[in-house]
Write a protein that binds this DNA or RNA. Structure first.
Lengths: 248, 248
DNA sequence: CGTTTCAATATGTATATACATAATTGCCAT
DNA sequence: ATGGCAATTATGTATATACATATTGAAACG
């Protein structure tokens, strides 16, 4: 066979060569033409096919390996991996964005604000070892006239002392925090729950009605920053998650 | 200042240099030492700091850019980006794995199996344009004696004709499909729902009880493969999602 | 004063080369 | 056989170099 038959249909867009090699190969894998376990051509073979240096091929293959599409073994070659654990990227938008995407006016309203020394439950939720000051907040996100989500939040004042000065009457603590906390790690828990009296009252739904609960714990540089619990009435919310194997 | 002061505490592990540069920089960003908007040193400066070639620095910075931690601008330099949309990776395990992780015996039981020509609803769920044969399945996943999840599934027989021969009496269609479909793209929808009569009956819970619903549509090489709906009783299931900004 | 031009600069991509490292193959000696 | 040793091979990392490209800042010009 002749060289460079890999980039079949493509007319020469202005993408880099290693990018083209990458997408050529991932196309083969994603389409199933190269099944799991299949050995993809050696670097020196691709070098010949694409008439380029090994570094260029290597760049493409390294990225495919990092993305999890292939596995590379010294002396043996590179192999198509089996589809891994179903992992998905879950986009968790700002509630304001989400409401406005529905074409409805957004509003936040504070229900409660309390500065206190952390109790055992606070520390458990935040993942704190030592006691310290926390800010407990509760608020409602509205879509138009309807309550859209109930937010209960704990802010670790040791990590974010400035939050103590803020009232959070009409600005939601989420966006406020994002602007102040440098970069964060987060853990989400998603579950269904029956609305208790308090939730039903706040969201204007029947007690016992199903709700979607999203809890998020956030760290910044290994320090617990905040714990939030969003409660959505079942009808108002569907989380959408997408899974595309690599290729950015 | 002298060179190579960046890798402060670290004793020389056996990681590559570009990896160390990458983690040094991401540490600075994640800890907040370099705030969003901060210009990180130019490639040639890092070259001097680490006494290495520009390619090595470039490899690290390119990865940081692809991971979304920094933004690179020609002629201007590289800048720390603001924390983006809260995105999380959601791990969706095989239900068998999940049940066995609880230390309970797992069992799958078929409730219904029907091969039919796709109706309008089937096509809507699968995202099919043209009519064709589909396999409609319903089954229960057990954790010990208790129903753990109810599964309703449509399989596009045009994409996976072999499925027509399979009875799925005691083997769940999920794992079966994973072995046959090469690589997939998927979309998940997660929401809360009240159990209707049918669900309540199958899961042995009260009608109206809150349930977590996870729906998944799967494509392979742009062809719709399957649509599943898992219904979990609220108590039995919490989805956990993690978000760590890069560094994989 | 505004606009155009141009050189300087940082990143983007690619090359040829080099040596390190891990794993497999085959050979040899016991 | 078999246990160990060395040669082979593919990947992993790094280098010096080269040229392309986008963008900025300043000089030249109308």
């Amino acid at each position: 066979m002749s060289t460079v038959e890999a980039s079949e249909m493509e007319s020469g867009e202005s993408i880099s060569l290693h990018q083209r090699i990458l997408s050529d190969i991932s196309e083969k894998i994603l389409s199933g033409a190269w099944a799991p376990g299949h050995r993809i051509p050696f670097e020196h073979e691709l070098t010949a096919q694409y008439r380029c240096s090994r570094m260029t091929v290597n760049k493409a293959l390294s990225q495919l390996a990092k993305a999890g599409l292939i596995e590379r073994r010294r002396r043996s070659g590179s192999f198509v991996r089996r589809p891994q654990s179903q992992a998905a990227v879950l986009e968790l938008h700002d509630i304001r964005i989400e409401v406005e995407a529905l074409g409805l006016p957004y509003r936040y309203e504070r229900l409660a604000r309390l500065k206190r020394r952390s109790n055992a439950e606070d520390r458990a939720l935040l993942g704190l070892a030592a006691p310290g000051q926390v800010l407990a907040l509760e608020g409602l996100h509205f879509a138009g006239q309807r309550p859209f989500a109930l937010e209960g939040r704990l802010v670790n004042l040791t990590a974010v002392p400035e939050a103590a000065e803020e009232e959070f009457v009409e600005i939601a603590p989420g966006p406020w925090l994002i602007g102040r906390v440098p970069w964060s790690e987060a853990e989400h828990r998603i579950r269904a729950m029956a609305a208790d009296e308090h939730i039903a009252d706040a969201l204007d739904i029947d007690p016992g009605a199903p709700c979607l609960v999203v809890e998020r714990r956030t760290w910044s540089a290994d320090h617990p920053v905040t714990h939030v619990r969003f409660v959505y009435p079942a009808e108002s919310h569907t989380l959408v998650a997408r899974f595309t194997p690599s290729q950015g």
